[in-house]
Design a protein around this nucleic acid. Sequence first.
DNA 1: GGTCATGATTCGGA
DNA 2: TCCGAATCATGACC
Length: 333
Amino acid sequence: MDEQPRLMHSHAGVGMAGHPGLPQHMQEGTGGADGDGRKQDIGDILQQIMTITDQSLDEAQARKHALNCHRMKPALFNVLCEIKEKTVLSIRGAQEEEPPDAQLMRLDNMLLAEGVSGPEKGGGSAAAAAAAAASGGAGADNSAEHSDYRAKLAQIRQIYHTELEKYEQACNEFTTHVMNLLREQSRTRPISPKEIERMVAIIHRKFSSIQMQLKQSTCEAVMILRSRFLDARRKRRNFNKQATEILNEYFYSHLSNPYPSEEAKEELAKKCSITVSQVSNWFGNKRIRYKKNIGKFQEEANMYAARTAVNATNVSSHGSQANSPSTPNSYCY
DNA sequence: GGTCATGATTCGGA
DNA sequence: TCCGAATCATGACC
């Protein structure tokens, strides 16, 4: 850091003659008195430019004005133009247009699908919908968890949009600032509108890389929320008492053939507010556990048999014909 | 914390 | 695809 002013001074005072960056016309005649004077002038101007940042604002403004009015300013401007032309040529080509980022597109698509970006979805996310479909909408617990999921997703959405807005605002402010700066500087050094455009594009690229990080973090948050929500769906919940009684009644009244048809399963599922697959699971578990320990289930079987018999009696006493239930022990393994 | 009950999952067989 | 069997994971109860 301490090195800089010294180096700059040496450029300004000594290094002009034969300097590789200098155009031919500036190097001609350096031996004459006029050449020496000119060299001294340019050295002074450069020295003033280099030290301008160390000065106070008022001082700098005054110095800037003086520089703009200096008689050697057009010559210096030409020198800078030529140096710049060479430099730009050497770095041109290294910054070709980048292809559209596939990763960014994936992130955008995911955020859109999850309802984080784009128009807000009233019914929550795809994950919530899928989980709701999978669970068959079993009761109040589900809706509570869905609303919890939606609330958390809305929170993520809000944070995402707030941050995005902040980044966009910062990007606009910074772009405006840089453009103003470049326009101002274009009075003392050559800056074409195209270059300003390119600088703006660079700034936008930088900010979009920050946006990409934001999108990535948001996607991660959504994925974590989603996996937690889906894991929660897998948590076992005991069926309510009424559902268990309906299933047991069917099981013990069909003990000779406890394999409900698809229609019966649907009917039971509807009555118990559970899914057909849950009915299937329940019967699968019940059959195997009953078979394994008939003795233990005997009391339960008798109770349901008696209840079914009472129901049948009541029905028949009202003049209706009821099928007599199977006896508990008719389920033969 | 241990134990039992129970819903869900997995895997092999028919 | 359904079923039986084994197993896992969690809730409920003590």
